[in-house]
Design a protein around this nucleic acid. Structure first.
Lengths: 174, 174
DNA sequence: ACCTGAACACCGTTCAAGT
DNA sequence: ACCTGAACACCGTTCAAGT
C-alpha cells in the first residue's frame, strides 16, 4: 500500500470512530470523508460499504474481548461485551450481525471471541454456578440486548437488566 | 375535519403501517405519501414529524396491550409486549422511547398499559411466583429488549431469551 | 495505484400558490 | 381548510478524469 493510501486509511478509521460515537452508526459517510480531509471517492475505495468500515472498527473490539476472557470471570466478561457494544448508537445491532454472519470477513475474530466466552461459560457451568442448558449464543444475544437497552434507556436501567440476567443464570432448571 | 382530510389521514396511517412493516421505522416518508396517493405536504400537515406518525401507530398498540392485561397472566402479557414491539424494525426503540418520554402525547396510553402490567406483576409477586425487587420498568425494558433481539437475531433466539428471562424472574434474591 | 469531485438519483422538510 | 409540488439542502454511490 502506498504511504499516502496508508495515511488515508488510518485517518478514515480514526475519524469514523469519532463520527459514529457522535451520531451513531448511521452517521453521514460524506461527513466522515470531509472530516478526514479526503475525497468521498477515497472513502469508498478503502471501504466499499458502510459495513466494511464498521467491520474494521469491530475487529479490534472483538480481539480485545477474546483476550480479556483470559483473566475475567464470566460476569465481568459479559459486562464488557454488553456495555462495550453500546459504544456507538446502532453498534449492538452490528455486533450481533457480525456474530451471525458466517460470510463476514470478521468471522475469524468473532469465532475467537465466541470460543473464549464459551470457555468461561463452561467453567461456570462445571462449577455449578450457571444453569447447564444455557449456550454461548444465548449469552451473546442477552449481552448485546443489554447494550441496546443502554443506548435506549440509559445505563441505570441496563445495569439492572444485566443484574437480573446474571441472577437468572443461576437457576437450575433446564 | 373536512372529509377529504379525514380520508387522507386514515390512508396515510394505513399505508405507513405497511411501509414501516416492509422497511422499518426509518422508511421513506416520501414513499408513504406516494403510496397513499397524497402530496408530500399533506403528509407533513397531518404528521409534522416521523415521530408523530409513529406515535399514532403506537397508540392503538398500547391500548390493546392495556386491555389484554385483563385476562392474560404475566408471562403471556410480557410475551405480547416483547414480540408485538417487533412488528417493524426499529419499533422496539420507539416503544421504549414512548415509555420514557413523559411529554409525549402518547403518555396517557403508556401509563394505562404500564399500570395494567404493574397489576399483573404485583399479583405474581404476591403469589410468590416472581422475585419481589423487580419493577414494571425492569420488565418493560427486558421485554422490548427481547423484541429487539427478535428483529436482529430472529425469533428462535428471542424465544430462548424470553424463557431465560421468565425463569430468572422466579429466583428469590433481592 | 491512488485520489478527486462532478453527476445521478434519492431523501427530509418547508412554503408559496392554488382550490 | 386543506392540498400540492417546486425548491432547498442534504445524502449514498459511481465513475471519468486526473496525478
Amino acid at each position: 500500500m502506498r504511504t499516502d493510501a496508508q495515511r488515508n486509511y488510518a485517518q478514515l478509521l480514526a475519524v469514523a470512530a469519532e463520527v459514529f460515537a457522535e451520531h451513531g452508526t448511521e452517521a453521514s459517510l460524506r461527513d466522515v470523508a470531509r472530516r478526514a480531509e479526503v475525497g468521498i471517492g477515497t472513502l469508498y475505495r478503502h471501504f466499499p460499504t458502510r459495513d466494511a468500515l464498521l467491520q474494521a472498527l469491530l475487529a479490534s473490539r472483538f480481539d480485545a474481548l477474546a483476550e480479556a476472557a483470559d483473566g475475567d470471570d464470566l460476569r465481568t466478561w459479559l459486562h464488557r461485551v454488553a456495555f462495550g457494544s453500546a459504544a456507538y448508537r446502532g453498534l449492538p445491532a452490528s455486533v450481533l450481525g457480525a456474530l451471525r454472519d458466517e460470510t463476514s470477513e470478521l468471522h475469524a475474530s468473532c469465532e475467537a471471541m465466541r470460543t473464549a466466552g464459551a470457555g468461561l461459560l463452561a467453567a461456570s457451568q462445571q462449577a455449578g454456578q450457571v444453569r447447564g442448558d444455557v449456550t454461548i449464543a444465548d449469552l451473546l444475544i442477552a449481552a448485546t440486548s443489554v447494550g441496546w437497552s443502554a443506548e435506549q434507556a440509559g445505563t441505570e436501567g441496563a445495569e439492572r437488566q444485566f443484574t437480573l440476567l446474571m441472577d437468572g443464570l443461576r437457576v437450575n432448571i433446564g
